[in-house]
């Protein structure tokens, strides 16, 4: 314990960090909560008192959840994408990590290849993906260019152009997000696998354990802390999905012709959309709802993982 008379020194050393955090982290959070409850708030008011006229209330939240609103659509999109992509990408990442861990030659090279998407800009990757799915020419015209994916599978599916179905849109998004989420998960899980004592596998081998049983009874429990970490960060990242949609569908956040209440927009997208039009109250309310959802899901995750990770 530092001498009481010396403690002011500690505060001075900490001051730069504390001041910066107060200005750029604590105050914005506080202000967001405050703004979410201001009805008819105009940010110009801070400069010009003539824009006064807001009152406290829940109208921002009520507006968010209004029938067929952009927000409820985005909420469904976000939840669906999370539920569809996080378990799939985690499972795939685990299988790839186990495979990578069990091969000796070229392991480093393959590791690098699998990690490449992580160091590549997701908007850029998104554009490449959208080219792969895009139809150039008239939809339904057999002479149009139906994109690489359709070429490979010999199909004429309208993935993301005018008149495409929501299911097709989701398929594109799920494929892209899973692919994009793999490298980080593989890296974390591979690290976990390499930390597992090889003797457990020798012991299992002496006991004649089959490969599937080794995977489920030994590998999965032993890397379960990493799996939980990957799941939690995966869900948090999934709820904040935004740039991948922009990457695929562009700033309209949906296929051509889709309205705001039926496009592929996500919750973060709604928040960003609200800002340029000065709807700070609505954006803040949406941010609070997103925060609440992430908090609840993470708590549930932690609760379940405490029961299923063993040590």
């Amino acid at each position: 314990m530092v001498d009481k008379s010396q403690q002011w020194k500690a505060w001075i050393y900490l001051a730069p960090a504390i001041v910066l955090m107060l200005i750029f982290t604590v105050w914005p959070i506080f202000n967001t909560i405050l703004m979410a409850f201001k009805e008819g708030y105009n940010p110009m008011y801070e400069l010009n008192p003539a824009f006064d006229g807001w009152t406290f209330g829940l109208q921002n939240f009520i507006d968010l959840f209004a029938h067929a609103s952009a927000f409820t659509n985005a909420l469904v999109n976000t939840l669906l994408l999370c539920v569809l992509t996080v378990p799939v990408s985690t499972m795939l990442a685990l299988l790839i990590a186990v495979a990578l861990n069990s091969i000796k030659p070229l392991q480093k090279l393959l590791q690098t290849i699998f990690f490449l998407p992580y160091v590549t800009n997701s908007i850029a990757i998104g554009m490449v993906f959208s080219v792969m799915f895009n139809i150039v020419g008239d939809v339904g015209d057999p002479s149009a260019n139906y994109g690489v994916i359709n070429q490979i599978f010999g199909t004429m599916i309208n993935w993301m152009n005018l008149g495409s179905t929501k299911v097709a849109n989701y398929a594109v998004m799920v494929i892209y997000i899973v692919w994009n989420a793999l490298p980080f998960k593989i890296l974390v899980l591979l690290g976990g696998l390499q930390g597992v004592n090889k003797q457990y596998y020798d012991a299992a081998k002496v006991d004649g354990t089959s490969k599937t049983r080794v995977f489920w009874r030994i590998t999965v429990p032993l890397v379960s802390p990493m799996i939980v970490y990957v799941l939690i960060t995966g869900f948090i990242g999934g709820f904040k999905e935004y740039s991948s949609i922009v990457g695929i569908f562009g700033e309209d956040m949906g296929a051509a012709g889709q309205q705001a209440h039926e496009n592929m927009n996500t919750m973060v997208g709604v928040i960003y959309d609200a800002l340029p039009s000065g709807q700070y109250g609505k954006a803040s309310a949406a941010a609070l709802v997103l925060f609440a959802i992430i908090l609840v899901v993470t708590l549930i995750n932690l609760k379940i993982s405490k029961k299923t990770t063993h040590y």
């Binding site: 012991a203 081998k205 002496v206 004649g208 009874r217 030994i218 032993l222 379960s224 063993h310």
Partner: peptide
């Protein structure tokens, strides 16, 4: 292979499965 030999092995650091 080990499982077909009918051997029991005790490892130096026991290698007990920690989650069981």
């Amino acid at each position: 292979s080990p499982e077909n030999r009918g051997v029991g092995l005790v490892f130096q650091n026991y290698a007990l499965y920690p989650h069981m």
